[in-house]
Nucleic acid binder design. Sequence first.
DNA 1: GGCTCATACTGTAACGTTACAGTTGGATTG
DNA 2: CAATCCAACTGTAACGTTACAGTATGAGCC
Lengths: 367, 367
Amino acid sequence: MSARRKVDMMAKQESDGTQRSGLADGARPTLKTIAFMTGLGVTTVSRALKDAPDIGEETKKRVKLIARQVGYRPNRAGVRLRTGKTNVISLVLNTDEQLMGFISDIISGVSEELADSPYHLILTPVSGHNDPMDPVRYVVETQSADGIIISQIEPNDARVRYLVEHGFPFATHGRTHMGIEHPWHDFDNHAFARQAVHALAKAGRRRLALLAPTPRLTYYRHMSDGFAEGLIETDAAELPFRDAWVDMPIEEIKAQALKLMRRPTPPDGIVCGSGAGAFALVSALEECGLRLGEDIDIVTKQSSRLVQMFRPRLLAVNEDFRRAGRELAKAVKASIAGADPTTLQTLYVPETVERVGQPPRPEFQGP
Amino acid sequence: MSARRKVDMMAKQESDGTQRSGLADGARPTLKTIAFMTGLGVTTVSRALKDAPDIGEETKKRVKLIARQVGYRPNRAGVRLRTGKTNVISLVLNTDEQLMGFISDIISGVSEELADSPYHLILTPVSGHNDPMDPVRYVVETQSADGIIISQIEPNDARVRYLVEHGFPFATHGRTHMGIEHPWHDFDNHAFARQAVHALAKAGRRRLALLAPTPRLTYYRHMSDGFAEGLIETDAAELPFRDAWVDMPIEEIKAQALKLMRRPTPPDGIVCGSGAGAFALVSALEECGLRLGEDIDIVTKQSSRLVQMFRPRLLAVNEDFRRAGRELAKAVKASIAGADPTTLQTLYVPETVERVGQPPRPEFQGP
DNA sequence: GGCTCATACTGTAACGTTACAGTTGGATTG
DNA sequence: CAATCCAACTGTAACGTTACAGTATGAGCC
């Protein structure tokens, strides 16, 4: 640029007074501020910061330098109003659940993945007695986010249908069976249940029960299929345990588990679909005088470190919710960027079953 | 309004074509849409929806009716750009913590309180190795929220000082000791620890240990003072337990607890500052062959329903994080509204210590 | 009949950004 | 040497909202 023009600009701006210069004392710097300081136009500054091809290299450097010096950050409301891009991702959470720390792990994972991105994370709560469709509709209708993450997925999920129909970017924690391709992340509950049965069979267990999720949810089928498959392969017997599921309040799980264990022939092995459920089961069996690791074995998911504190031996596989959060965040970001949904589907296959916790009977006696 | 003027307006608008009418097919209705439909000016519609005093009752009714019919929702970006009000509350969370479900309970409480308000909840993560000041500065500097909720409060907390100095609305989960009045909600850890000691003394326990939080945090002092006070009142002895605190990873708490319990004279009672910590303690003492409720008693906080699943008898008081979330949300909202901070300080005093869990030895033997 | 006054409305400008359609000045071309 | 082209910049308008400073209308008053 010519020196002359620059000086002209400076003079013109100065005559306008500080009010219009965008340099008002404590206020946040805007594009105008930088435009004034560099003697460039607002548009040029905007484009320079975006590395537009029609801006000179020198100019870009200068603009970026000043932008950094004054601590310029684009005004989100301005961008949002102009472009419609919110730079927000909404995570829909059921706020009634009191299931251990797994929600905070998902949140941590999502935050982690979003940390170096322009995205803010907003929480959109659903309460169990409301239509799970409400928050989704709200976000889409008010365009309060660029993408959305939902969980508790059903095989035929109205929310997924709605989001696909509206072309709204999203990712689900769990799969559907609707013949619609969409971004998802899931834990392989089929593999989990099958491996669990094998592990129990290897420990000599023959009468197995499954604490499954609500039949309403997709992964109910995955888990019960895996369980059934394991039973056939190991020739073990199933003890129906259909009055309890992992999504119930933990006290109710325990109550149902007590009934199960007080049957004439109680199970000698249980596959437990959630870490929290395992607490209820262990509590119940202790109350019945059954000894974990001796009379009965339990396989569960090590969804929290708390599971490691189980005193008797417990069998567990690791379900990493933090990782799930990261995967989900990645998937929505890519979905927003317009990626093919079939490339945004990840299945986390659990590692083999391990024993956690300490030995069933203390070797060491206190002083 | 005169019929004539209305007709004029309609005619004028119609000649403008649909493009400018704000009635473009699937698009979100704006003030312009309603202005067109009612034949009023955009300003009038805006003011009518706000119940401004200079708008006629008839007009208000008509505008509101149409607004409801077309499903009008103010565009947040527009409002934010114009007024500076974000209608967002930021909750700062440490995303390293893996402490049980208490984070999700706080989130639920906050969401609950914000449900019928215009506020959205955004999560601003801090990682433990970053300066806790960073997210606070970010929110204030970029004005990305109208108010902020922080936790893990220290007696002399730089964040609180910063927020007060900048006149930025906030609420803290925990108190400070800086001689600065600000909105807070806190659990009475002094009362908790004192009551806990009394409960242990009543059960005949004489050698007591305290699993306290990091000394850095304000409530460390509250808890240890309450503990000390209880000791004096009950004439019990303290067994120092200073290498562990409730904020450590649960495995480390357990490791430290093992050392404590393997001392020549182990404690016969422990006051445990967190529900998660209790899992580690119980795990440790079982590993040492100590029997909970017989050789030793533990008092903890029933911060999660999981604590109820403790097989042996455990003493616990209820710490309601959901309620804490609600209180904090209320406090920020009031702080934003400009309320006197001294009226926004609530202390949750725990109820008396209760036994939870089932009896120590099973009365019932399985079949 | 002119005056004031209150009521009920109005248009304009601005918040900060970006898409778009220019404009300028110099170099390259036929 | 005029025509063309390109690089590097520019201003204007618009997104949806609200603050502000009006304006038109009719009533009430002297």
